[in-house]
Each structure stands twice: as structure tokens, then as C-alpha cells.
Design a protein around this nucleic acid. Structure first.
Lengths: 154, 154
DNA sequence: CTAGTGTGGATGACACGTCAACTAAATGGC
DNA sequence: GCCATTTAGTTGACGTGTCATCCACACTAG
């Protein structure tokens, strides 16, 4: 009969707006900073971080799952990174289709140089703005949203 | 003497990871949904929403400031949207450099159709996962981070 | 062994964002 | 009025993300 309540309450809207705004500003700024002081793209950073963290040698598909990317995106990304000398691709003996992605020394050096700087930025922009209680609250909220999302269709 | 504490505590790291993960999943999913059920890109949606909200006729620069984009991005975006018939560009009589961006009827129709669906998705994926207290807490945290970021260099 | 299916990965077309350079008109000082 | 400086907006190159498609190899059933 009567239409469902289409819009958000002003409090809900305010929360959503604040979240979106903060998320955009924060991510945007961190991205620009990674690029500025490491000459790597944010994607390069993530991939290299996860790759070296896992030993520096991984199957493309495993890497994609680890970072939660689709394989196509990872394939493109790895291709570009190979062109820049950050990683190399090796054939996989066990699986004729397979490819190992291997971090080059330059790649290792790049990430080892970039990581502390990046963490410093995260601390300065984000961590330092909040108390540990607020961080805990945020983590709890984020995890709640994540588990709730998993139950939703689509 | 001793190096500064380079890394985050495990609690800090956990909070950061949860936030990033939730943010990526949520934004990713909402983006795909906008595209799926409106045949508009997320950028189209935002621009059209803000534009019509403001009367459907605005200077490009004002629009850019409103959405907090740089003018270049807005110019490209508006160009594409014009090509798709969502907006048109009109010369500005008062300012020879200027351009008015005007939402076309098709643009208005598109956003009016897409908005309720999008809000429903936001509600379903995000709002419904949290209590009003949690939403308030999140808003407070987000605003804290935002004001803290404004004080930081860069 | 072989036919069908599934999986790892590459590829190409396209939309998007960023950066730097550029044009042209407005503005302010003199 | 004239020159220097802003400001509005465009443009092109480039790196990136997505989607659909494709290929080669692996696996399984028969």
C-alpha cells in the first residue's frame, strides 16, 4: 500500500556521508603519497607487499586470491610490474598453464624501502587521530558490516 | 639511537585491515550494483545526483568543488556524460571561458530511477548491519579522522 | 584413450583518473 | 589602456580496472 521508506534518516545519511568522505580523502591521500615517495603505484605496493610477505614466489592465481582481486586484473598488473622490473614470471613445471610470480631484487628493495614510509603515513593520518578504543570500535563495526555483507545476495 | 617503532601494534593493524577490507568490499559492491541496475557508472551517478540536487544547472567548476574533484576529472567526466546524452554544455554569457553543465531530461530520468535503488543497496549492505549507536560512533570516528587529516601536512 | 568440462592465465577493447601542458578570458595594478 | 597574474576549462598521454573472450593444459567419466 504505502511506499516503503525510500530515504535514509538524517542521522543515517550523516553517518554514511561521513564514512564516504573520510574513506575517499584517506585513501586518496595515501595513494598519492605511496606514489610520491616510492615511485610505485598503490597496486604495485599491495602486490609486492603480499608477495614478499609470502616468500616472494607465488602462483598468479594464489596471489590474486590473497589480494582478493580477479585474475584478469592480477594478470595485467603483473605484466606491467614485470615491464618495470619489479617481478618476473617463471614457468611452472608441475602445471603447464601455470606461472610463478617472483619478486626481483629490485622489487624487494622497492617494497622494503616503501613499507616503513607508508606505515608512517597510515599512523600519522589515521591511527594517531583515534584512541585504541575508537580503533577497536571501528574494527568491530567494519567486521560487522563485512559479515553482514556476506549474508546478502549479489 | 634505537629506531622509532616502525610497525603498528597488532590491534592497530587489525583495525586498519578491517577498515580497508570493509571499505573495499562495500564500495566495490555498490559500484557494481549501480552499474548493473542503472547502466550508469558510479561517477555518472554522483555527478548527476549532485547536479540535479542543485537544480540541474551549474558551472563546471562549482560542480567540481561540490563533488570535491579536480577540474580535469570533471571536464573528462562531463565530456563523456554529454556523449551519452546525460548532460549538455552551454556557454556562459557572463564569462567567456565558462560553461554551464545542464542535466538533460534523460539525465534526470536516469538519476531519479537509479537513486532509490542505490539507497536501498546502501541500506541493505551497510545501514542494516549496524545499530544507530554504531552509526553514530562511526560518524564520530570518521569526522575525527577528517579533522585530524586537515591539520596534517601534505 | 578420448570427449567434455574445468581451471590458469593472457589478451584486447573500452571506461576511467591523473598529471602536465595548454588556451582563452577575467582581473588587478599601474 | 596595458601588462602580469589568476581562473575556467580543455586536451593528450599514460597507467589502471573491468569485462568478455580465448587458449592451453588438467581432470574426469566413460
Amino acid at each position: 500500500m504505502d511506499a516503503p521508506p525510500h530515504w535514509l534518516t538524517s542521522e543515517q545519511q550523516a553517518a554514511w556521508d561521513s564514512f564516504i568522505r573520510m574513506q575517499e580523502k584517506l585513501i586518496g591521500r595515501l595513494s598519492r603519497q605511496v606514489q610520491a615517495d616510492s615511485r610505485m603505484s598503490p597496486s604495485d605496493y599491495i602486490v609486492l607487499a603480499k608477495l614478499t610477505e609470502a616468500g616472494g614466489r607465488m602462483r598468479l592465481m594464489d596471489l590474486a586470491k590473497l589480494v582478493e582481486w580477479e585474475k584478469s586484473r592480477m594478470s595485467h598488473q603483473v605484466g606491467r610490474m614485470a615491464k618495470r622490473g619489479l617481478v618476473t614470471k617463471e614457468d611452472c613445471p608441475d602445471d603447464g598453464r601455470g606461472a610463478f610470480i617472483v619478486a626481483t631484487p629490485e622489487g624487494r628493495e622497492a617494497i622494503e624501502e616503501a613499507a616503513p614510509v607508508h606505515v608512517e603515513h597510515v599512523r600519522r593520518l589515521f591511527i594517531d587521530a583515534l584512541t585504541q578504543e575508537e580503533l577497536d570500535a571501528l574494527a568491530r563495526i567494519a567486521n560487522r558490516v563485512l559479515t553482514h555483507m556476506e549474508k546478502q545476495p549479489d
